[in-house]
């Protein structure tokens, strides 16, 4: 059982950085990567990401693993671009598909940019615990409060979601084992049968999850929580 969320225990400047900064950094980094157009800028981006990777002390296996999981997707990107992008001087053609050099180049460029963004994302998940993520999101949402965005409610929702993920994961796995005992495995053949076999997993999971939601919301209301009247964590709440 791997540590939840892919977080890697280590100490590095990235681990210690505040989550809000990392979240903004990810968005900025992704934007910069998307601006890469040619081999020079691509090389610069590669170096930058590599340096960050070393600094994060997370290990290349963890950072590169998602790329392996995406290998088919990346292949499709390269193939689609190689075959459909351009019509000039095809090296090979078959019907509407034309294999061109500019197409291959573009495909590789897009694939490389995708990989870089994915690695940046992996760096974020590996250096930030779920609680830190929630905190970071909260911090980032604060300025929006002035625009009338219900940030407290949003922050609450984010917190509840993160809090429930490990619980629901554990329960779903237990349920899967219990249902397998009841009736044998889920490896049915045929789409309809497979879908039907999911019913016995999904119905109990949802009932259980919504039951918890029900209990939690009742508990919150019993303590005076109201969605519209909240004014920050220490605001007074009227009990009606």
């Amino acid at each position: 059982m791997r540590t939840f969320g892919g977080y890697v225990w280590a100490d590095s400047p990235l681990h210690r950085a505040p989550a809000a900064a990392k979240l903004v950094g990810l968005v900025v980094g992704a934007a910069l990567v998307l601006a890469v157009r040619g081999p020079i800028t691509l090389a610069a981006a590669l170096v930058a990401v590599a340096v960050l990777g070393v600094v994060s002390r997370v290990g290349w296996r963890r950072l590169l693993a998602p790329l392996w999981g995406m290998r088919w997707f990346l292949l499709v990107i390269v193939a689609l671009n190689a075959l459909l992008f351009s019509v000039s001087e095809p090296l090979f053609s078959l019907g509407p598909l034309r294999l061109t050099l500019p197409g291959i180049e573009r495909g590789l460029l897009i694939a490389a940019r995708t990989c870089l963004i994915v690695v940046l994302g992996a760096m974020l998940t590996a250096t930030t615990t779920p609680q830190q993520v929630v905190h970071g999101v909260r911090e980032l949402l604060k300025p929006l409060a002035r625009l009338g965005v219900p940030t407290e409610t949003a922050a609450l929702a984010v917190g509840v979601t993160v809090q429930f993920v490990p619980t629901l994961l554990r329960e779903s796995r237990q349920l899967m084992r219990a249902q397998e005992l009841r009736c044998g495995g889920f490896a049915a053949r045929g789409i309809m049968r497979r879908a039907v076999s999911y019913v016995r997993l999904l119905v109990p999971v949802f009932v259980c999850a919504v039951r918890r939601a029900d209990e939690l919301s009742r508990a919150m209301e019993a303590r005076g929580y109201r969605v519209d009247r909240r004014r920050g964590a220490t605001g007074e709440r009227g009990c009606s």
Binding site: E171, A178, L181, L201, L202
Partner: peptide
């Protein structure tokens, strides 16, 4: 074998 897990009513569907 027949097993009744903890809180078995959670398995209803």
């Amino acid at each position: 074998v027949g097993m009744v897990s903890q809180i078995p009513e959670r398995q209803f569907f």
